[in-house]
Write a protein that binds this DNA or RNA. Structure first.
Lengths: 354, 354
DNA sequence: ATCGATTTGAGGTGCGCACCTCAGAATTTT
DNA sequence: AAAATTCTGAGGTGCGCACCTCAAATCGAT
């Protein structure tokens, strides 16, 4: 229990205490009020005063005490996660992590809400977003396919002063929206590389199954996957992407057809969010192809353990949630974000490192 | 900018404001002073009062406001990272992360120091630890091989009231020390599984090179690695562990000898912290074996990109540092730790998911 | 019943900052 | 020059909690 007297001498490898706003005011030769005005971007400060404060900040190495600031700024950030309404295992996991984060961040004065967007009806989804008022909400993390309606809604939200990040599924970067999620092309390439290595010298067809190829994410993953097999690999044929539309029956049907059409299937890449649908179909097949899926869920985890799945390419939902919240918070407080810390890693899971 | 008036009505998916200690005192029918005594584990409270407070905590769902608490408890935690003196690339990366974390946590009133321990001389290392006073330091994360001297020094530190976690290299769990790091047996098994899959139908010898097999970590990794090849794999021979002692010349020598003795080498598992030594030797060989190493460093990253390394099994140094600090802090504040959040993942890196 | 020990309550202080007010100073405009 | 405007400083308040003191109440044992 080390108390920290002001002006504590530097000892060992430790640093001394940090200057406060009072020290800053003194160093800058202005009053606390002016320091406050500069620090919090209030109006009515002359250029020379602003300059003096900034110079003093540099000189004495002032850093705002975030703990005290968030306490004093009796303002809990309210963030919304806008997620698709259709339920998938990955979304369930994500919701769990959001709930977990909500509990953890109550202590930090952050309130978390969830809004479900009707994917089938972009207009309705856009209206849900438009209904969010800046009074109720400081920031929104949006996971939705990019449509003109959504794009407009996002634009209007930002005009209302609500911070927005695009979450997991990337909105076009042109708008300058921060993106929280993995590089899907790299994720696809990762899956492709594993597939190729696991296949070794084997030859045959590789099937690719997506929920739908409408979404940017699936496209990017497929493109990344293909980069690995492009060129000199005549013995491996990556077949056109099959689409399941998240429908168990259709999944069964398209897979059965594909297996019939290509008796030499040696690999199966499950791009989409519902790999368990395909895995269920596959369970009945005798010689299983090398199978790689995305996202760790109870289903994929079990399949990995049971050997029905050879690898899973994953993005950590906990990280996604926390990163989105950190970015939104930084934006609210007009702090810079450390891009390096916010990069979501592409994780590879096999049975041994679960 | 949402202000949070007390007794704010619940809106949307948001939660209402949290009760304060004052509310808690009222609910428990005791005074603020008694609530304070219970919350902070001070003495002189009857069992019945303690009971009443805890019941009230449950009932009204009180949760301490960490922001206010850390501000009021004008006590900056001081934590030390005690690391080996011998420099490796992994340690350099680790030091970078520690420096980064130090900067980031100044705002949270946490001070971070680094202490280097002379590995060659356990007595000297133990003395360095013994010199740490509880006045100067609230917690220590120790990365060191377990020796009787270190064990005793740790014991004495704990008796002095300094919190300790064993860091990266595990001290025996018998002492009830929290451990921050990966399960090395699982990490070894992960490397083994990748090796086996990457080898496919190939047959031959697999070499294993460690810095030294003195450390528990290397032993565990080797054991985990072997589990994958145990039993029905006559075509793959995992050879006895070679030791480099971190010496470039010796590395070169033992590897050259091993390659001479086993012309059929198809795999190379680099257990230790200095894979770059072996990689340098390997660069001159024509047909490279499947090579797997531990820990992402500039060297291993480059080797992955250049194809000289096929996979890296990794533990994130940033996570390690933050997790150690979180655990130490939780111990200082007598808070429980969320074991699930503190599990360090075994990451798999290939060229595509860097 | 008396004494000591234990338990409790009331109250205060301060952490570092955000945010507010209002009066006075410095500057610009008329 | 006066008036209007912009800028500045001094001061206060409160966030939720930790930590402190001191007096009063309660308890147990003799």
């Amino acid at each position: 229990m080390v108390r920290l007297p002001r002006n504590a001498p530097a000892r060992d490898g430790f640093v001394t205490l940090r200057p406060t706003t009072k020290d800053l005011a003194q160093a800058a030769g202005v009053s606390l009020a002016t320091v406050d005005r500069v620090l919090n971007g209030r109006s009515g400060v002359s250029a020379s005063s602003t300059e003096a404060v900034h110079a003093a900040i540099e000189r004495i190495g002032f850093e705002r005490n975030i703990v005290a600031a968030t306490l004093a700024r009796q303002r809990g950030h309210r963030f919304l996660f806008a997620l698709p309404e259709t339920s998938t295992e990955f979304l369930d996991v994500l919701l769990d992590r959001i709930a977990e984060f909500r509990r953890a961040s109550m202590g930090e004065m952050i309130q978390i809400g969830v809004l479900r967007l009707d994917e089938r009806d972009p207009h309705r989804a856009a209206r849900s977003l438009t209904a969010i008022s800046a009074e109720d909400c400081d920031g929104v993390a949006i996971m939705a396919a990019e449509t003109p309606q959504i794009r407009d809604a996002v634009q209007r939200m930002r005009e209302r002063g609500i911070n927005v990040v695009s979450f997991i599924s990337n909105q076009p970067e042109a708008e300058g929206l921060p993106f929280v999620g993995i590089d899907n092309a790299a994720a696809g390439a990762t899956a492709g590389r594993l597939m190729r290595r696991f296949l070794g010298p084997r030859s045959g067809s590789i099937l690719v199954l997506a929920d739908t190829m409408q979404g940017r994410d699936s496209l990017e993953r497929r493109l990344g996957f293909d980069t690995i097999f492009a060129g000199a690999l005549p013995q491996l044929q990556v077949r056109p992407t099959l689409e399941s539309y998240g429908d168990p029956d259709r999944t069964q049907r398209v897979l059965a057809n594909a297996f019939a059409a290509h008796p030499d299937v040696v690999g199966l890449y499950l791009i989409g969010m519902q790999p368990q649908l395909a895995l269920a179909t596959l369970a009945s097949r005798p010689s299983a192809p090398i199978t790689i899926a995305h996202e760790r869920t109870p289903s994929t985890e079990l399949a990995l353990r049971e050997g029905r799945l050879d690898a899973v390419v994953h993005q950590d939902p906990g990280h996604l949630v926390r990163s989105a919240a950190r970015i939104l918070r930084a934006q609210c407080e007009k702090r810079p974000i450390l891009a390096s810390q916010e990069r979501i890693r592409i994780e590879i899971l096999i049975a041994e490192n679960l």
